[in-house]
Structures are given as structure tokens and as C-alpha cells.
Design a protein around this nucleic acid. Structure first.
Lengths: 135, 135
DNA sequence: TATATACCCGACTAAAATAGTCAAGTTTAG
DNA sequence: CTAAACTTGACTATTTTAGTCGGGTATATA
């Protein structure tokens, strides 16, 4: 798998929004300042979050973003999915039916990576955004 | 975290050795052919495995490698450790006391990555090489 | 003893991924 | 009307990955 800064910052930014509980839209500029994340990078991240309907945008002056869901109802797995990061371990090509590593059948470790994926995805399936800010 | 081909190939190669159960040392050339892994790359991998005493080498003609332990006693976590891959999620700098992301205190998602590490490490702690070949 | 086989090991490199930046917008509150 | 804030695609430097290369050393066996 591959957890990069995009995923990490996305979770940080959303946790920031959730803990802030503003009635107003929250601007990326504010999140940028509070969480020490580059504004331009946040824009890139929120574009994806918006496309996956995790946040909604309000344009114009005094605009910003608001969470589409209640934090106790937003699974972390949804966030990773939005960033094309749906926790895939490097390993065998899941799509091709052709087997692994140029071989004609499944490789000896194939099932292992499948299990690992399940294990990790289960972790993120069971974590809600709310869990991060309760503490 | 970061699972790369080195870790993956290491597990494949060791599983190959375990399933072969030769009394003779097994040459990298044989493993290379059976598992479709470059010989030169295997050499690099086995160097590390040897340093961590996961395998032992027999030099010279008709030499090769033998497993140092019984496969039912070799945890996958040991293999990853040998390859400097002791499952670290990208995230906050664990060593520095200085907090995360240039901030003076722990970031809002700090505990999350700690938990994830534990979750993944537990998976590899509980898996033995034997588990891969029984099936 | 010759020699082929196989381990040993550091240095190097091409390709891919990451972590952003930049530029040029559009929308809308005040 | 203008400043704040979102929108979007393209671009790029740096780092990491996934190996290769080359020149060893050791030893079983013929």
C-alpha cells in the first residue's frame, strides 16, 4: 500500500473542519494556516474530496467548504477512496486474470496480499472522522 | 507504509524454499527460475536475509541457501524487518520529539497512524512462513 | 589443481511516483 | 466593482524504487 501526504493531509484537514464545527463555510486559507499545509496543495486535495461528495463548496467571497456528512458517519475509507488511495498493497495485479509476476497462475504469496488488504481496509472501514476528534 | 518488491520477493523466495524442503542448499539460480525473479536482485535480497540470520549460506559449487529456522517458527514480521521494511506508515516523525508537520505538538491525526502501524504489524506478527505454503 | 558454480558486495542508473508549484481563470458577497 | 475564495490543468524538482553492473571470493567436484 501507499499512504502519501495527500491522504494524510486530507484526513488532517477534514478533522480540522470537524473539530471546528463552524456554521459558516470554512475557507482553505484558514485550514492552511491552522494545519500548516500549503494552500495550493489543499486546493488540489479538496477538488477530489468535492468530486466524491465528501465536502461541498461555497464559492465567492466568504465562501469555503462544508462537510457533506456528519463526522460520526464519515468513514476514513471513504476519504482514501476519494484520493485514489483505496489501500492497495503493492503485489499482484488484481485485475488481470493472467496470474502474478508474469506467471500463468497465482503466485505463492497471492493470498497473503489479499488478506493484508482486507485487514487494512477493515481498519479504515471501522474508523470514523468523529473518532479522531474525540480526544 | 511501503511494501515494495524487495519485501514481496523476499517472502516469495522464502516460501519457495520452505515448500521445496530440500536437504541440499537451494541455489538462488533455482529460485530465480521458479519464481521469475532476477538473479541479481535475489542476491541483493538474500544478502539482507543472511545478515539478519533468516537464511544461512553455503558457498562454492553446489552451494546455496538454507532456512535458519523452521517455517512454522518464522514470522513474516522478521522478514520485513530484515529488509528495513518494518511496516511504517508515512506520517509523523516517530523519532523527533518535536511534534508533527513542523508544529510544536502532536498533530490531530497522530494517534491514528500509530494505531494503524500496530494494526498492520499485528498482522505480520501473527503470520508464519508455514501459513503461506499450507494451501 | 582447474574450473565452474554460487555466494558477496558496493556503486550505479533509468524510470516512476511524490509532493508540491504555477498560471490563469470563475464566482459571488459585500 | 473588487477582493476573497473556489476551479482546473499543466508543469516540475526531488525522492524513491527497482533493479543492473562489475568485479570480486570461496569451494565442491571432476
Amino acid at each position: 500500500m501507499r499512504l502519501n501526504t495527500k491522504s494524510r493531509y486530507a484526513v488532517m484537514a477534514l478533522a480540522d473542519m470537524a473539530s471546528f464545527k463552524a456554521n459558516k463555510p470554512i475557507s482553505l486559507r484558514d485550514i492552511s494556516l491552522r494545519q500548516s499545509i500549503s494552500l495550493m496543495y489543499l486546493e488540489q486535495i479538496f477538488l477530489k474530496l468535492k468530486k466524491h461528495n465528501i465536502v461541498q463548496s461555497v464559492r465567492g467571497s466568504s465562501g469555503g467548504y462544508i462537510l457533506s456528512k456528519n463526522p460520526n458517519n464519515l468513514k476514513l475509507s471513504e476519504i482514501f477512496l476519494a484520493l485514489d488511495e483505496n489501500v492497495k498493497t503493492i503485489g499482484c495485479d488484481k485485475d488481470s486474470k493472467k496470474g502474478c509476476n508474469g506467471r500463468s497462475s497465482k503466485c505463492i504469496t497471492h493470498n497473503l496480499w489479499d488478506e493484508l488488504d482486507l485487514h487494512i481496509n477493515a481498519f479504515f472501514e471501522n474508523k470514523k472522522l468523529e473518532d479522531l476528534i474525540r480526544n
